[in-house]
Amino acid sequence: MISFLRSVSAEFAKIFTTRLWWILAIVLFCYIGLLAGGLAALFGGVQTGVISPDTVNTGGAAITFGTLPPLIYSFASSVGYVFPVLLGALASTGEFRHQTLTPTFLATPRRGVVLGAKTVTLILIGAGLGLVALAASVGIGGGVLSAFGVDALLQGSGTWLLVARTLLAMGLWAAIGVGLGVLVPNQVASIVIVLAFTQFIEPLLRLAASFLEVTAKIGNFLPGAASDALVGASIFTVASPAGAAPLDWWQGGLVLLGYALIATIIGYFVSWKKDVT
């Protein structure tokens, strides 16, 4: 146990002694802040009549009062989730790339302990990135909504539940990143997979799956869909045609955890416990 806690502290030190974490945090904040602030202005303006509905082709999708703030706030995870995945994947592939597995396993010969500590550490740091993303989506997005006279719902417990679930989702995404990194230890390959899957393949799959009820049920188990179910709101669920009902929030959480565990456990056997040469 004490060796596990030491490993966790060491993994924290590994993240915070290189520059990647704060670069990702700054980019994440700006990206989500721009997106949430911009769309809050657009939707808020349409809803309050400041911007004429004729100016913006909404395709007839009526947005009712009360749903707008969670939609804006959920950008933290529905768009921002790629950041903790990247940090997690870079944390584990970096050990292979820079051959730091050697000093790591010399200091802590129990390799399972190290991988477990890395996962726990990245869950916490992923949640930290979630905090940064929420600061942008709730802070800037909510501020813009208020400026347009839309109730930002900051008093409602619903918003704070969404905040808590977003932190959980972002932590789990970082764990998925760690798992992917041990599954595909080649850093470049890992980054390409993360970007291609999150930015291109999964959104397309979710859209394609949503047209039929049967496939929509399967589509619910895609990691992005599970994450949105966990958080409870997403631009993707609003934008997709009516399909099957999404998973419950806890089911979504379990699906995400499942992806993280499966990737990490398989990765442990295919790369982590292999010879370090």
Partner: peptide
């Protein structure tokens, strides 16, 4: 023999990581 360092980490931090891990 292998150069087992993260190039972006200082020598002090590199050693600190493993000092922590080993208690």
């Amino acid at each position: 023999e292998a150069a087992s360092f993260h190039p972006g980490r200082s020598a002090r931090d590199h050693l600190a990581v493993y000092t922590i891990a080993a208690g």
